[in-house]
Design a protein around this nucleic acid. Structure first.
Lengths: 163, 163, 163, 163
DNA sequence: TTTT
DNA sequence: TTTT
């Protein structure tokens, strides 16, 4: 029995072609950045577009859908949860933080590079219950250049991940 | 006309008494950390509670409600949007990021320190349209040009924030 | 201070061209049906598409956007709230119920007839706070005291509405 | 691959003790009404509380949680999907409609009769993927007095239900 | 880094 | 009554 709610909905466009990799245990992981656009007033009181970038991480079947259908420019709708990982930077010794959206469900919309779905949409959910998309991804690394834990050498396998 | 969707729902407990400050323009700003609990399997395959901490920022009327009713331990439901601010760290020269939830609506639940609401609940929204929580933040510096995020003269530093 | 949460997200396709009318007070009201598709197992255990139809009602500026951009087939994302109206049927004397989604925000997606927005998307919110879509509906009679729901002088009757 | 989104969040109080029953196949089903309160302006322009009632249906494990912990007055948070069933009324021959919320997840809050959870909260999800909570509940009846299909005599068993 |  |  989980307690609490941690739920995110994002509709936007993918910034670059997703990065796909596999864990030692053979699980597919996809990560990409998603831009959500918002109109808001700037300092001068004029309406201006503002883009917010989000780090999205998908696992398993959802990751495979990303691999097969999501490209730079794709318009998608994401449902997921917020997770912030932290680590001590090797060089500076400082605490660093990275906030990511662990994606539970992904719906392809008819964006610029939205793959085969034409003008329609398709939803996928690689896993299920509210908490299940949350991997024990304390050691999961998206694009940290160095000094961070990584599935590859951390001994984490698919068995460590609760879905 | 905004484009895109950036929406967050969080239900959890407040980690410390909120920090309240005013902008130069006189707008009230409240910030606090919120813990959302999730049950998930740990490395040994046992179900374990996992707590995720979120940085919440409220403006205007919602901030005043926080000031008056929200305390350490309060159980609340938040609706808001994700925003990541970045700045170059003065000392290390490194790019730093901080992700916050800009709160549009806040519902007090009957938690430990949930104020006067008894067993019931009360919702507040200090501002209105999807983008307005951010747009009304004219006095809240979202893109700190240099150094560290500015928490004004309230004595708030990054050390006060759990990530 | 409202209490409680009543929030709906729907992504689907519009079944017919929307019906547009004006209240006595001059407020624009738009109503249409929206189909959301879902895959689920049928009685034989095979996956089959299942379509759920929803009655959507928009007010003010959102209604004007519907009038100008939404057509039969349009793919849209709706945020709104559930409302069930009831009345005593004149003929049978029975209590009747109709559940509608009062739309706060509408995002046009790139569906078949999605108007001028091409492959992108645009969001509109005619009103703002959680409760305001309903509260701004001063001219829209939510609790019809007798007879049938009142669609004013627009010629709209229950027969025009699919349930 | 499902298409579309049909998602509902409700926070409110339970109107009466839930009705619990079992299908022929032994699946537990719980149904109850949930009141969500909203402040909105009335015809005179004064703010007034308005209560919206929702028909909630839970299945399997979520239904068992309802049976064990949810009572009249309980404050709960629901995540689910909208479903409207229709049938021809035996007596009048008229088409009738009933809209229900099929609950995927339920979080107990610290309301009046919120069970053992004290000031905290507990979430349960009896089933998982976006579409899975949707049973083939075309024949499901919550409290129809007569003339409606019913699991009991309709030959529907758990095998007919996709989760 | 996306999109209109 | 939509859509793929």
């Amino acid at each position: 029995m989980a307690k609490g709610v941690n739920k995110v909905f994002l509709l936007g466009n993918v910034g670059k072609d997703p990065e796909i990799r596999s864990t030692a245990g053979g699980m597919t992981v996809a990560s990409f950045s998603l831009a959500t656009a918002d109109r808001q007033k700037d300092a001068q009181g004029n309406w201006a577009d503002k883009t917010e970038w989000h780090n999205i991480v998908c696992f398993q079947r959802t990751a495979e859908v990303v691999r097969d259908y999501v490209k730079k420019g794709s318009q998608i709708l994401i449902e997921g949860k917020i997770q912030t990982r932290s680590w001590d930077d090797k060089t500076s010794g400082e605490k660093k933080y990275k906030t990511e959206i662990l994606c539970n469900e992904l719906t392809l919309l008819g964006g610029k590079a939205g793959g085969e779905s034409g003008g329609g949409s398709s939803s996928y959910s690689g896993s299920s219950s509210r908490s299940s998309a949350a991997s024990s991804s304390g050691g999961y690394d998206q694009r940290q250049p160095a000094g961070t834990p990584d599935y590859g050498d951390s001994g984490i396998t698919d068995d460590d991940i609760p879905f």
